[in-house]
Design a protein around this nucleic acid. Structure first.
Lengths: 194, 194
DNA sequence: AAAAAACGTTGACAAATGTCAACGGAATTG
DNA sequence: CAATTCCGTTGACATTTGTCAACGTTTTTT
C-alpha cells in the first residue's frame, strides 16, 4: 500500500531512504479509502491532511455565489490532493476536495509531516522539489491564462496531461481551464476540422 | 544599502540574524543599479541572479508570436525580481525582466544563495516563507482567472495592491491582468458609474 | 520652452466565449 | 433489463472582451 509513496520519494530525491526511514513513513502515513463523491475537505474546514493518491482520482474546487463549481486542481495516482494554503497555515479553506472515483490515499497531518521532515533528509528534498515543480506549474498556468486563447490552453493541456483528458469528463476539464463545456466542445470540433 | 534586506529577513523569520550573518549577507549580495529600460534578464538567457529591490520598479514579461508583451510579474521595493524556474533549474528563460524605473537592487546567484542558506537559518526560514506566500499568491491568481470576470479581478487587485496601481501605468496593469488597456479603461469607467 | 513620447479614453465593429434549452447516446444504478 | 443519470453536442442568441483608429492630455526629453 505504501510502496508507491516509497518509490515516489526515491524518484524525487538524490538522498536514498534507509530502512528506518521507510519504517517511519509506513507508520506515519495513514491509509484511507475515499469513496466516489466523498469529501476529503469541505469549504470552511481547515485542511488537516495532505493526501498522496495511490489509486483513484480527486478534484479540488470552489463554489461561487451562483452555485457554479470552479475546478482548481485535479489529482490522480502519484499526485497529491491538498489545499496547500489551508494545510500550511491551518486556516479555513474556501475549497472542497472530493473523490471523482473511489480512491485509495495515504494521509498525513501538517505536524506529522514536519516531524518526519526533521528525521528524513530524503523527504525534505522530495518536498522541496515538489514545491518547486508545483510553483513552476502553477506559474505556467497563470502565464497561459493571460496570454493564450482557450483553444491553445486546451491543446497544451491535452499534450501535457493526456492522462487527465482520459480520466476526467470534458465538463470537468472545461471548468479546470476556466471555460464552459459548450465552448470546449466547440473548440474540440474546430480542432478536428483543421 | 543592505539595511532593507536585513529588515526584510528579520521580518520574515522567527530566527534572528546574528552580526556574523549580517556580515555574510552584506558580503554576498551585490548592489546594482539598473537603469530604466535596462534588462536584468533577456529571453533565452539563464536567470543568473535573484534581485531584491531596494528602490525602484521592475517587470517580467514574455513576448508572443505577434510581438505582444504579456506581463507576468511586477515588482517594487521589498519585492524580488527573478524568473524562479530559470534561477532554480538553470535553464534558459522565456522571459524578459527589465526596470520600469531606475532601480537599486541587491543581486545573488543560485550557488551563493544555497551557500548562504547552509550557514544562516534565518535565511532558510525567510526563503521558505517567501516560497509559501508566493505559491499561495500565484494559486489565488489562477483561481481568479478561471472564476472571475475581468472587472472583479481588477477590483480585487486594486484593493490588494494599491501601490502597484499607483506605480504602474494602466496598460501595464491591464497586461498583467490579461486584458487590453481599452477594456481596463471601460471597466474603470463603469465602476465609477456604479 | 518646444517637441516628442507616453498615456488613457472613446467609438465602431469583430471575435471569443457564455447562456439557455434541448436532444441523443453512453454509462450507471436498481 | 429497464430506468435513471451522466455526458457531449448543437443552435440561437447574449455578453464580454478584443481590435483598430483617432484624439486630447500629461509627462518626458531635448
Amino acid at each position: 500500500m505504501h510502496d508507491p509513496l516509497i518509490s515516489y520519494i526515491n524518484r524525487h530525491s538524490a538522498v536514498p531512504l534507509t530502512d528506518g526511514d521507510i519504517e517511519l513513513i509506513k507508520n506515519t502515513f495513514l491509509p484511507k479509502r475515499i469513496r466516489k463523491k466523498q469529501y476529503l475537505l469541505q469549504a470552511g474546514e481547515v485542511c488537516k491532511y495532505g493526501a498522496f493518491i495511490v489509486k483513484g482520482a480527486m478534484r479540488q474546487y470552489s463554489v461561487d455565489d451562483k452555485g457554479a463549481e470552479h475546478i482548481v486542481r485535479l489529482s490522480i495516482e502519484n499526485w497529491w490532493a491538498v489545499d496547500r494554503e489551508s494545510f500550511l497555515m491551518l486556516t479555513p479553506s474556501i475549497y472542497n476536495i472530493d473523490a471523482w472515483e473511489d480512491t485509495d490515499a495515504l494521509l498525513i497531518t501538517n505536524a506529522d509531516m514536519n516531524e518526519l521532515a526533521n528525521k528524513i533528509p530524503a523527504l525534505v528534498e522530495m518536498l522541496r522539489k515538489l514545491d518547486e515543480r508545483h510553483s513552476i506549474a502553477v506559474q505556467k498556468r497563470v502565464n497561459a491564462s493571460i496570454s493564450l486563447s482557450a483553444e491553445k490552453r486546451y491543446d497544451d493541456f491535452a499534450k501535457q496531461y493526456p492522462e487527465f483528458i482520459r480520466r476526467f469528463p470534458q465538463h470537468i476539464i472545461a471548468s479546470y481551464l476556466g471555460i464552459t463545456k459548450e465552448t470546449l466542445s466547440r473548440i474540440r470540433h474546430q480542432a478536428v476540422k483543421k
